[in-house]
């Protein structure tokens, strides 16, 4: 499974949606994921890819990690996974 599909599966599970209902343009808010859901999603992503995501809930816009959409999250994860390889 590609990184993209894995991330979408994790987000879909958190949002209690089918992966096919999650589009790249969606924001987490649109998917009904609140701040706790976000922290849980990041934890699940870290576990799935064995990476550390630099994210502080107090300053999400200042983190190196862009959470503004599903696409930006996938791009961020791809970068982190590539850096680790």
């Amino acid at each position: 499974m590609s990184i993209k599909d894995k991330v979408i599966n994790i987000i879909a599970e958190q949002a209690v949606l089918e992966p096919s209902d999650v589009t790249l343009g969606n924001t987490l808010e649109e998917l009904g994921i609140d701040s706790l859901g976000l922290v849980e999603s990041i934890f699940a992503i870290e576990e799935a890819f064995d990476i550390t995501v630099p994210f502080n809930a107090n300053e999400p816009e200042q983190s190196d990690f862009d959470i503004s959409s599903v696409a930006s999250i996938i791009a961020g994860i791809e970068k982190l996974v590539a850096e680790q390889a």
Binding site: V39, N56, A57
Partner: peptide, 20 residues
């Protein structure tokens, strides 16, 4: 740590640049 609300450098209450 898991909650991601902790600061790595300092506690700065009420300051615009507070980070946990």
């Amino acid at each position: 740590e898991g909650l991601r609300v902790m600061s790595k450098d300092a506690c700065r209450p009420f300051s615009a640049n507070r980070n946990g």
